[in-house]
């Protein structure tokens, strides 16, 4: 029976030390993840950065670009000139 109680004590210590260690390990990991999250703000995902120029380009082509406006207005001006001459 004495033997049993010493094993019991050992199991109890194992329980306390084990749980303590698991909590400590994962708590440090929480801190590490939080630091990681703060640092990662400086390195945002490259994916949205790549997307943004693309969408900007799409919007531009949806609206009329300045060079197209210039081309059309010169063409209109030339047509009017020709019309007046005729």
């Amino acid at each position: 029976m004495e033997n049993l109680s010493s094993v019991f004590a050992e199991a109890g210590i194992l329980m306390i030390v084990g749980m303590g260690f698991v909590f400590a390990f994962l708590s440090i990991l929480i801190v590490a993840i939080n630091i990681l999250a703060k640092l990662s703000i400086k390195f945002p995902d490259p994916v949205p950065q790549v997307r943004r120029p693309k969408t900007v380009a799409n919007v531009d082509s949806g609206a009329v670009s300045p060079s197209v406006v210039a081309a059309i207005s010169t063409a209109v001006a030339q047509y009017r000139k020709n019309k007046i001459k005729n």
């Binding site: 094993v7 019991f8 199991a11 194992l14 698991v22 909590f23 390990f25 994962l26 708590s27 929480i30």
Partner: peptide, 22 residues
Amino acid sequence: PRMLLLGAAAQFGIFATLFGAI
């Protein structure tokens, strides 16, 4: 990341059972 504490707490099952097995 606080969810790690839940993952840690659930390991109590392991250590309590160790006691039970003894």
